[in-house]
Design a protein around this nucleic acid. Sequence first.
DNA 1: ATAACATATGTACAGTTGTACATATATTAT
DNA 2: ATAATATATGTACAACTGTACATATGTTAT
Lengths: 106, 106
Amino acid sequence: MEEFLRYEHMKDEIPKISDFYKIMGDETRLEIMFLLMEAEMSVGEITKNINRDQTTISHQLRLMKKSGFVLSTRHGKYIFYSLDDHVKNIIKDTLRHLNEVGNEEK
Amino acid sequence: MEEFLRYEHMKDEIPKISDFYKIMGDETRLEIMFLLMEAEMSVGEITKNINRDQTTISHQLRLMKKSGFVLSTRHGKYIFYSLDDHVKNIIKDTLRHLNEVGNEEK
DNA sequence: ATAACATATGTACAGTTGTACATATATTAT
DNA sequence: ATAATATATGTACAACTGTACATATGTTAT
């Protein structure tokens, strides 16, 4: 087992790791992230794609920005959000394994 | 962009993915998982390592077992829990990226 | 059988979280 | 200026979740 992963070393990091996964664990935020996997997108476009109130999207984007999950740049009236590259990679890595969880082969 | 990751294809999977991350997003469960990264362990041992009531650990183990995160085998009075291998790998993959989230270099 | 220990289950309650309403602010067009 | 559009913020409330207490069940030793 990799030394750096041992429990005593991870203990202090757990709140941070937990916060990270908490943000991942919400359907609205995941929908936003999957949209932003494809391209950066304005709040309006995101709202059009997702069945939630615009203010809900806005609140979630604020939270996601504060935690470094997304970046934003204004272009005139529009504000475009994009997904952090490391978050993209974590999602990809997770999906590669996810179907197998709970299916130990033999 | 990988075709299989496009939003329309992921949309139906989102509740499942969200459920997965929800389980990851709790400090007690993460502590249990990090302990089990090292070795399989009985409920008593887990309880000794974590500052929570035995019944709390037991409730969480039940949830984690139902969702395929852990396996259990009884040895006499003791029940040993072990961590699903895919969950192990997902945790490792995540940690590899996690420190970088929100730190886009340049 | 009974005691001692290990683990599980029922329940209730406090704390957290996601949501939408109402409203505010920012930008562009007229 | 004012209107129209895009996005953000304040607030309140229902729903969900983690926890520990009390208690039950399962296992081993005597």
